[in-house]
């Protein structure tokens, strides 16, 4: 019994520790999208903690109180069929909790899928992020530059990452700025984020892509707009141009350091034509919709 108590208290301590520990990457947001997800996570932890505590207390009470050793030898447990009210409570409370969490989920999901809060009216900076085994290629179509395995972004401006892949499904993830989204070969996904503070953030592919997966990381550096502009101009002035041959070399499976080029691969190796989640989507959105519809059909059969 004591061991159960130890177990219980250690889990409790663990959760307290968790809530106090704001240094965990995901819970240390530097932008509105990540802040929304961090808030949702904390709310759900607290809500779930209530359930966990109720279950633990009930369990401990039952186990201690109704233990055979604590009862008379001739005690014969009664036959109890069930009680309507108990069952209504057992169903009702979880339903209320689920409704509460559903509201939060729907609201926050729309929030993180849309433009970052507070920047709704700003013109977003579009950056194409393409995954290849085991690298990330970032193309800035407006600035006409391309980087490998690192990306600079301006703070206080919404960024629209257009994600796709050369090869296996990868998942673009900068935990302190926003949650993940898949980069896939046959369509372009859009990830919205914004950084409120300048700094260096860890980014990586979170979806397994084979041998070099563990090292498929990139750095995100958020700079104040003026510094960002200086950086752009510097690159435009100094970097080598990206040729098709060079790009095909970069696509070869393997691991690369950080590289910088002028020009982008978008001209000679354009991204897939199917777009998702983008407002200015070019009308091919129904592919996925159809897919889900007929999946549901097949389930009904």
């Amino acid at each position: 019994m004591t061991k159960k108590l130890i177990l219980f208290s250690s889990i409790f301590a663990f959760l307290i520790f968790l809530t106090g520990c704001q240094s965990l990457t995901v819970l240390d947001p530097k932008g509105p999208q990540a802040e929304t997800t961090a808030d949702v996570i904390m709310t759900s932890i607290w809500t779930m903690l209530i359930i966990v505590i109720v279950v633990f207390i009930l369990l401990i009470v039952m186990l201690v109180k109704y233990r055979a050793r604590n009862q008379a030898d001739d005690y014969e447990p009664p036959y109890i069929k069930g009680n309507k009210w108990v069952e209504i409570i057992c169903v009702g409370i979880p339903i209320i909790i689920v409704i509460f969490l559903s509201v939060i989920t729907v609201k926050s999901t729309y929030e993180v899928e849309g433009k970052p809060k507070g920047y709704e009216n700003d013109e977003p900076l579009v950056i194409y992020a393409a995954s290849s085994n085991w690298k990330w290629h970032f193309s800035y179509p407006e600035e006409n530059i391309e980087t490998v395995n690192y990306v600079f972004i301006p703070t206080d401006r919404p960024i629209e990452f257009k994600l796709y892949a050369y090869g296996p499904i990868a998942s673009f993830w900068v935990p302190q700025l926003a949650g993940q989204k898949y980069a896939m070969a046959n369509m372009v996904n859009t990830l919205n984020l914004a950084a409120t503070e300048p700094g260096e953030y860890m980014g990586r592919n979170a979806s397994f892509t084979g041998e070099g997966f563990a090292e498929q990381t990139f750095n995100v550096t958020a700079l104040p707009p003026a510094d960002y502009q200086t950086w752009i101009e510097e690159i435009q002035a100094t970097a080598e141009p990206l040729t098709e041959d060079k790009f095909n070399q970069l696509l070869e499976p393997g691991r690369l350091g950080q590289e910088t080029y002028t020009g982008t691969h978008l001209e000679f190796s354009p991204p897939p034509t199917t777009h998702h989640g983008a407002k200015e989507s070019d009308g091919t959105e129904n592919t996925e919709q159809e897919m889900n519809d007929s999946m549901e059909d097949s389930m009904e059969n």
């Binding site: 159809e290 897919m291 007929s294 999946m295 059909d297 097949s298 389930m299 059969n301």
Partner: peptide, 14 residues
């Protein structure tokens, strides 16, 4: 078998 063919139909439509 219905589940099997339903899956085949679903993939055909997609």
């Amino acid at each position: 078998e219905i589940a099997l063919f339903a899956t085949l139909f679903a993939s055909y439509f997609l």
